Computed example of a mutant assay.
Amino acid sequence: MSAHERLDGTVVAVTGAARGVGLATARRLAAAGAAVALGDLDADAVKAAAESIAARTGAMTVGIPLDVTNRPWFAAFLDDAEKALGPLDVLVNNAGVMWAGPFAEEPDAVAERQFGVNVFGVLHGMKLVLPRMRERGCGHVITIASAAGRIAPPGQACYAATKHAVYGYCAAVREELCGTGVHLSVVLPGVVDTSFAAGPATGAASRRLTPEQVAEAVLGVALRPRFEVWVPGRNGIVVRLAALLPQRAQDALYRALVPNQLRTDPLAGLAYESSVFCDSEFGDADEIR
């Protein structure tokens, strides 16, 4: 890796970082020279993850328990991260949860939990960290959204709604930050091969991504900020081209390419959904994509 491809001296915080994409992202950014604060609801797992990354890369890391739905807790997480590592340069909003199935069968508590983690978790982080960055005249918030933030797979109505909300929120806030030196980015991956996607299909034209592929995209946008990053990039081309088609042709294209989650095995994601949504405290609510 050349000097231009490194993040030496950069302080990063990653939410939902005990496993999956969050863990892969924390590892990749640490390997590029960043000091990384990992946050996750699973306190033991996130501390172990931070120690493992430090041992592997030699980077400064800290693992801090975090519930992104709790704004005071999120504020304390940011304060603790900055006390341990220094002023935060990059926040990676990664924590998220998903439920798949017919819209009318989704329990209200599950829908509310998805909005709590996927939307308000992002809003809390941005509202807390962006004023600090704007005051310094620099900084970058990278939000791991989803391809579902621009399309709407059947069987993921609420999840898609949360990701559409995140995309729109980031687009609007980005305009407010114009000229401040602070950047906003959204990363839009397809289906990633983690426990988060144990049930969902991938669609006729795509394969499951690895967490490392998404982490590489995060590193790329951290080095060269831009607003919208598709993983893989061809998905963005398809979406832009589809927008030019008549509705009937657009519908046919999406039905051919976008996975219909109502056709998947309802038992395939049962372990994930049970751990996240069925516990009285919703289990590891920051389980990630």
Rank of each mutant, 00 (worst) to 15 (best):
N260S: 11
A84R: 15
V14Y: 15
G220K: 02
L29Q: 05
L245N: 06
H140T: 06
V191P: 03
Y169M: 14
Y169T: 13
K127E: 12
V258I: 14
V62Y: 01
A95I: 00
C278T: 01
P131R: 09
V214D: 02
G269Y: 01
A32L: 08
L267D: 05
A243T: 12
A49V: 05
E212C: 06
G168N: 14
T162F: 01
G139P: 02
Q213S: 01
V129Y: 01
A43E: 07
V238E: 10
I142D: 02
P102C: 06
R234G: 09
R150W: 04
A34N: 09
R208N: 01
L177W: 02
Y159L: 07
I237H: 08
Y272R: 13
E216V: 11
V14S: 15
Y167F: 15
K83C: 15
S146M: 08
Q213L: 01
E112D: 10
T264W: 02
R150Y: 04
T61D: 09
K47A: 13
T69P: 06
G149E: 11
G168C: 13
G39M: 13
D89R: 10
A54D: 04
Q156E: 13
V221Y: 03
V218I: 14
C158R: 13
A31W: 03
F196L: 13
V62W: 01
E273D: 06
E105F: 04
I64C: 12
A201K: 11
I64H: 12
V129D: 00
G203Q: 04
I151E: 03
C138G: 09
R27D: 03
H183D: 11
H124T: 04
A197L: 06
P200K: 04
F196Q: 02
A48F: 12
G203S: 05
G39N: 12
A165W: 06
E106N: 05
C278D: 09
G137K: 14
G137R: 15
L245A: 04
C178R: 15
M1P: 07
T57L: 10
L130V: 06
L267V: 04
Q156M: 15
D193Q: 00
N235C: 07
T210C: 05
Y169I: 12
T15F: 05
P131L: 07
L7A: 09
S146N: 09
T61F: 14
A43T: 04
V14A: 13
L88Y: 00
T264E: 10
V173H: 08
